[in-house]
């Protein structure tokens, strides 16, 4: 751990670390504005910068180019899918026949590891009929618990969407 941090400290700042730091800084500043409005920015901006710099030094991730319009489309997609997911599971829970055929299904992830795979693993549990259980094979296979056999299609849709948002190569349909 010490060696890794020392290596990161020694190579900082690189273009990637500066890009990551900038993205975290902007995100944290937006959170501050959402919580406090534009008042107190004299304290919020230095705090956001300090948090971004410390995060870059000790827990830097892979920066991806930002596509705000794509994120907006993704937010709409996610909102729709999560409402569908909630409605679907509520209907199944209330149905007298309890219409579920639960099973585990392995899913081959084609997204790059890191933030895209983390988001996929996290958001799968909010989609209609799917629950992420465990990542295998160095984050290349996700074990999904599906309430119905066809529910796995929603994971494929989410992966295609995330690939588009992050500018990664699109998975095969």
């Amino acid at each position: 751990m010490v060696t890794k941090n020392a290596h990161q400290l020694g190579t900082w700042p690189t273009a990637k670390s500066l890009a990551w730091c900038g993205q975290v800084f902007v995100a944290l500043t937006l959170v501050w504005i959402a919580l406090n409005g534009f008042e107190g920015l004299y304290a919020g901006v230095p705090a956001a910068f300090a948090a971004a710099a410390l995060g870059t030094l000790y827990a830097r991730g892979q920066p991806y180019p930002w596509h705000p319009l794509r994120w907006l489309v993704f937010a709409g997609f996610f909102l729709l899918e999560s409402v569908k997911g909630g409605t679907d599971v509520a209907w199944r829970a209330l149905h007298p026949a309890l219409k579920i055929e639960p099973e585990f299904q392995p899913y081959d992830i084609e997204l790059p590891p890191g933030l895209p795979t983390t988001l996929l693993t996290s958001l799968v549990s909010l989609l209609p009929g799917t629950l992420s259980v465990r990542l295998f094979e160095h984050e290349h296979v996700l074990n999904v618990h599906a309430l119905t056999p066809s529910a796995i299609d929603s994971v494929r849709r989410l992966e295609r969407m995330l690939g588009w948002v992050f500018g990664a190569p699109r998975p095969n349909p």
């Binding site: 999560s82 409402v83 997911g85 909630g86 409605t87 679907d88 599971v89 509520a90 199944r92 829970a93 209330l94 309890l98 579920i100 639960p102 549990s125 909010l126 209609p128 009929g129 629950l131 259980v133 618990h145 309430l147």
Partner: peptide, 28 residues
Amino acid sequence: AGTIGLLRFPDVFCRLHALTKADNVGLG
């Protein structure tokens, strides 16, 4: 509905479906 699913579904995995998804929409 999420709480009813928690009571009716047969195992821990199915119950997690009910809690995460229905409560997410409920909170929203």
